[in-house]
Design a protein around this nucleic acid. Structure first.
Lengths: 224, 224
DNA sequence: TATAATAGTTAGTATTACCTAACAATATAA
DNA sequence: TTATATTGTTAGGTAATACTAACTATTATA
């Protein structure tokens, strides 16, 4: 399996169910994939033929793309490697947040089953990477998030939005204003005892939200 | 710089002065390089053109190849990365001796100045890799070996042959029988108090050598 | 439902890194 | 010193991965 093929599979995994905001698996269009990979759709089209021949994807002319079981398994292995390397760079080498992705993009293609497992061991078999994204296990199983209300997360901790409890138009509009959606990372800056409102930080911008709002956001803070 | 170009430079470094038994820099032939890289000489020839254009090697038609300063610096960076990764795999992840090379062959091509330096730091700035080979520093400087007589190396330690003190035909023939040459790795298995002879292991084969022989072998055991 | 916009495919081209086969230069040895 | 062996080069070809341009199918809308 070439580095390029691996990147296609990873992209398909991402676009079909791993990207922020996706609730259930969806098929992927050729152009969608091309623009994500910053390639031309003709280039992608050729690769699709090869991936189909190798039984890694389902694809019929002019139809959307989906991963086969084999393709998904292979792709999840790359995601696993990527996230383990990110964790390694962050926790063992003191890289920061912004730098880890680019280097992990390279490291994820190193071919050595043993290396991945040893790094996993060295890190203490983490379930989440430094961004709070779940790390698939050896078999490709993605750890279940531990779900709690944003209002219960401690000051100073970070969390990731898993779901919203209220789907009213007003609430969703408000979330959009705050730039909050599924998988958004939120840092808890402080809590106001007076009215139980919470100071949060999203993409380096600080906001204040009421307890009612916090109570309607389900998050995971288990990677702290 | 492509992975392939990096491998050519590394090979040239190796063949021109890093390989066991080479005492001073020598120029390299096209076929020599080709057979080392397990490629056809026509393939190598094309690459030589490119490396020359990039000012990484000196090469005139039908003449031998040598590295430019720039080529040597670049190549030594790859050697540095290779040996640091080998050390990492061995000392931090418990890989054994035989496995480390293959994985380091991949890891050495990861592009991140910071990563190399962090790994170097994590390892405590080692001077030698698990094989006893010197690790070039950031600037490409190769640490000087610490030279001592084989007879002074402690039981249980490993060392690498640096030079021979006696160049008589008889002595050299004897060394050849024992499979000892420059850069040969020797493990000290035991010492016989009776006659000061030494039990050694070379490539998993055990031998016994007299004190007189040991006294004529200059080695480095500083990587233990 | 005709047409425009979007999405997907095909054809032909370039580059990298390999190959084989044929040939040219240099070195060695009878 | 000429014949032979070795070494190095050139020409032409292939597979992988990208591209542009032109085409076709599908979808959305007026």
């Amino acid at each position: 399996m070439s580095l390029t093929e691996e990147n296609y599979l990873k992209a398909l995994i991402y676009l079909s169910f791993l990207a922020p905001g996706i609730k259930e698996k969806k098929d992927v269009g050729t152009n969608e994939l091309a623009s994500y990979l910053k390639l031309k759709s003709s280039t992608v089209n050729e690769m699709l033929k090869r991936l189909k021949e190798k039984n890694l994807i389902h694809h019929e002319k002019y139809k959307k793309i989906s991963l086969t079981n084999s393709g998904e398994r292979t792709g999840l292995k790359i995601v696993r490697k990527h996230r383990l390397w990110e964790t390694f760079l962050f926790t063992k080498l003191g890289f920061d947040w912004i730098e880890i992705h680019e280097v992990a993009e390279q490291l994820e293609h190193i071919k050595s089953e043993k290396l991945v497992e040893k790094i996993d061991m060295l890190l203490g078999y983490p379930n989440y990477d430094p961004h709070g994204d779940p790390i698939p296990d050896k078999c490709g199983k993605i750890p279940q998030r531990i779900c709690k209300n944003l209002s219960t997360v401690e000051r100073g901790k970070n969390c990731v939005v898993l779901a919203v409890r209220n789907t009213s138009r007003d609430f969703l509009n408000y979330l959009e204003d705050l730039n909050i959606s599924i998988k958004t990372e939120i840092a808890i800056v402080g809590k106001i005892a007076f009215d139980n409102s919470i100071k949060i930080k999203i993409k380096n911008k600080q906001h204040s939200i009421s307890n009612k709002v916090a109570d309607n956001l389900l998050v995971d803070d288990s990677f702290n």
